[in-house]
Computed example of a mutant assay.
Amino acid sequence: MIAMLLATQAATAEPLPEEAANTAVQAAAAVAPASADHFNILTLILHASIPVQLVMLLLLFASIASWVIIFRKKRVLDRAENEAIKFEERFWSGAELSKLYAGASERNRDIGGLEAIFEGGFREFNRIRQRRGVDSRIQLEGAQRAMRATASRELDGLEHNLEFLANVGSISPYVGLFGTVWGIMISFQGLANVKEATIATVAPGISEALIATAMGLFAAIPAVWAYNRFATKVERIGVRYEAFAEEFSSILQRQAHLDE
């Protein structure tokens, strides 16, 4: 009995042959690249179904267009804010209104923002003032209407393409979800011809489908952030335009009383 136990221990402690160890190392090395290739995003996209690829292409286009609009809109809003600051400094520095109007109404000069509001209001004020027997209240109302119309056009230009960012931010996750649902449906339909369904069988199709959801979020998050930021900035600029129009109306009202 003791002899049998000693023989069993000796057999258990015997090391593996060198060829068996090399075979195990080679098998592990072969599995590692296969796993890495399995999680390659580009490979998953190329192996996805046609509807899922179309969804991804649509989301990629929406993302690129959103970033183009984001960079352009940032430049436009920054320029509008800087021009408003510079014109307010000139306006409140004590310069004569006639000189400011002459500079704003020069030919071949593109004006916008507060300067355009000032030019429209003062032009209408002078036009009505040239009529004889016109009440000062009518002069002021005409100038205010002209300033409101100009401010509305300026704000409409600043808000241009913000609707596209809002649509991308709200629709992209659902478009990506549609691609995911479609890809998962295709994956489960493929199981009909498989006798034994395992996770390894379903995982590639589901991974391909989930990329669509990831791309939808990738397109939506920057668009939502940019829309909220730009909408707030446009609102602040609009408040600035309204405040200037009110202050300029007070100046024109005093000017109309002096003319009488």
Rank of each mutant, 00 (worst) to 15 (best):
T23A: 13
F87R: 01
V52S: 11
L5E: 14
R90H: 09
T198D: 14
R72N: 12
R90T: 03
I138T: 09
S249Y: 03
K99V: 13
V175P: 00
E81I: 00
D110C: 07
R131C: 05
A84Q: 10
G120I: 00
A11G: 03
F125H: 06
A151N: 02
R132E: 15
E88R: 13
F178C: 07
L42G: 14
H38G: 12
L114H: 08
K233C: 07
A226P: 00
A219F: 07
R79S: 08
R123L: 03
I2G: 07
E106N: 10
P173F: 05
P173H: 04
G113P: 08
A7P: 00
G94L: 05
A95F: 01
A80D: 05
A223R: 02
L60E: 02
L46R: 11
S136D: 11
G121T: 01
A24M: 15
V234E: 03
R109C: 11
T12Q: 14
A27V: 04
A27P: 01
S250A: 12
R123M: 06
S187I: 03
D259C: 07
R75K: 11
M215W: 07
Q139P: 08
M215G: 03
T213N: 02
L114G: 01
F39E: 15
P222L: 04
S152H: 10
V25Y: 14
F125M: 06
P33N: 10
S35M: 15
A27S: 13
L60T: 08
I69H: 03
I138D: 14
A203H: 12
E154A: 03
L60A: 14
A223N: 03
S250K: 11
V25D: 13
N193H: 04
S250Y: 10
A62E: 02
L59T: 03
F248H: 05
G205E: 05
E141R: 08
Q26L: 15
R148W: 02
M185P: 01
K99G: 08
V68S: 08
S207D: 13
T150I: 07
N228F: 11
W67E: 00
R229F: 08
T12M: 12
F71K: 09
L5F: 09
S152N: 12
R123V: 00
E260T: 12
E106S: 11
A95Y: 04
A220Q: 04
